[in-house]
Computed example of a mutant assay.
Amino acid sequence: MVEHRMVNVNGVRLHLAEQGEGPLVVLLHGFPESWRSWRHQFGPLAEAGFRVVAPDQRGYGRSDHPADVEAYSILHLVGDVVGLIRALGEEQAYVVGHDWGAPVAWHTALLRPDLVLGVAGLSVPPPFRGKEPPLAAMDKAFGGRFYWNYFNRPGVADAEFARDPRTGLRKFVYAASGDAPGPVKQPLVDPERGWLAAMRDPETLPEWFTEDDLDALTESFSGGFTGALNWYRNLDRNWELTAPWAGAVVTSPALYVYGERDLVPAFPGTPELIERLPGLMPGLRRPPLELAGCGHWTQQERPAEVTAALLDFLRDCQSR
């Protein structure tokens, strides 16, 4: 049974869900999600002999939402994972992340490999620091219309999501899923209309995302969206802060999983990076796993396949 509690980490209170006993597995959600994005993985991983913990990361759900934008840098987020491992009384952990949780997981392995028994990323591939700040690069490539740039307009996306959170989240989840029709496109935003206005509002939700799931997700954003959006407002600052690790690679045992119809692996330069990963990542346990027909929400859209891949990876790490 999943249990809930609060822990103090690095000056913030984090809400976490946990189940099971054994080696620690930390599951990190993305945007716009919560610990519940891992609801299908808790039982199987716990039954397989692991202690499974999924926090609401800072700025999300019942965890603290610091007011300072700079409190959401990648160093703060990695610090939360390191502090969480310690607060749980553990010395090491397996770290798994989806969407924004993936860069946090990858950077935890990059910056603190002594703590990471294995790292898995879903949707977002391992970090390879570019030659220029990411917001500037996307601004040049798409004339300021890439969603990262839109999210960096103070208060704008915050207000758009907050106007009708339930409808906005329903449209967003559907639009980024493998169920949405049409080709996968770059996530560009009309700066006058906003992002959600252009998204189709589905008549029915996909089978894997119920009305109860939508209710729970909506409730998790009752405190607003600013904390979650502040993660994006640190993209260029993260580029500056990680300069000492330019050229460094993740050496921990690693797994990368992504959906065939996920918009993130289609970002400029990402398909080429995915092809090169086996040669770039010394700890990659298998070639990147592509899930046919799957969209962005990997562990929710394809729970059985993702759980099986994670269990195979964890057992492989334990056997070595």
Rank of each mutant, 00 (worst) to 15 (best):
V2A: 12
P244C: 09
R163G: 01
A109V: 06
A254V: 04
E3F: 07
H107A: 15
P303S: 08
A105Q: 05
V156S: 00
G30V: 02
A216I: 03
N152V: 05
G295C: 09
Y94P: 00
F128E: 12
L196K: 12
K185V: 14
A162P: 01
D213Y: 02
F142M: 02
D80I: 05
D114W: 12
E160Y: 05
Y147T: 07
A175G: 03
D158C: 00
R39W: 00
G224I: 10
V95T: 04
A67I: 11
P23S: 15
R36V: 04
H4F: 15
L311Y: 11
N234F: 12
G143E: 01
A157D: 07
V306Y: 11
P206T: 13
E211S: 06
T218A: 05
A162N: 05
D164Q: 13
F128Q: 03
R315M: 01
L115T: 04
V81G: 02
Y94W: 07
L196V: 08
W38S: 01
A67T: 12
L310A: 10
G259Q: 04
E132D: 10
D80M: 12
W208E: 02
Y232H: 13
G121C: 04
E21S: 15
A308P: 04
R302M: 14
F313D: 07
G295A: 07
L117E: 06
A159M: 10
G101S: 05
A48G: 09
W38Y: 13
S177T: 00
D179H: 14
G49V: 04
P181Q: 08
L311W: 12
T270I: 15
G143K: 12
K140T: 11
A197P: 05
L291W: 09
G79K: 10
Q57F: 01
P278Q: 09
P44T: 06
Q318T: 05
R285W: 00
H15P: 02
P187C: 05
D262H: 09
P127C: 06
G259P: 06
P133V: 06
A120D: 02
A228C: 11
A109I: 07
G178F: 13
L273K: 11
L196N: 02
L277S: 04
D164A: 15
V264P: 02
L115S: 03
S63D: 08
N8D: 15
E70L: 13
G89V: 09
A159H: 00
Q299V: 01
R112F: 14
H15G: 08
Q41M: 08
A198C: 04
R276G: 03
A254S: 15
L241T: 00
P32D: 08
A71E: 03
S177R: 10
P303H: 01
V26P: 02
E219M: 03
P288V: 10
F50Y: 15
Y150H: 11
G130E: 13
Y232Q: 11
Q19D: 00
P55V: 03
T298I: 14
E192N: 13
P32F: 08
W245S: 08
G61L: 03
P202M: 10
G101T: 02
W231R: 03
D190G: 11
A246L: 11
N238W: 10
G59W: 01
P282M: 14
G20Q: 04
H296T: 06
L88N: 01
L289S: 04
F146Q: 13
V82A: 11
R166N: 00
E290H: 05
L135D: 00
S252Q: 14
R13K: 13
T218S: 08
V173Q: 07
W106Q: 09
S177K: 10
I274Q: 09
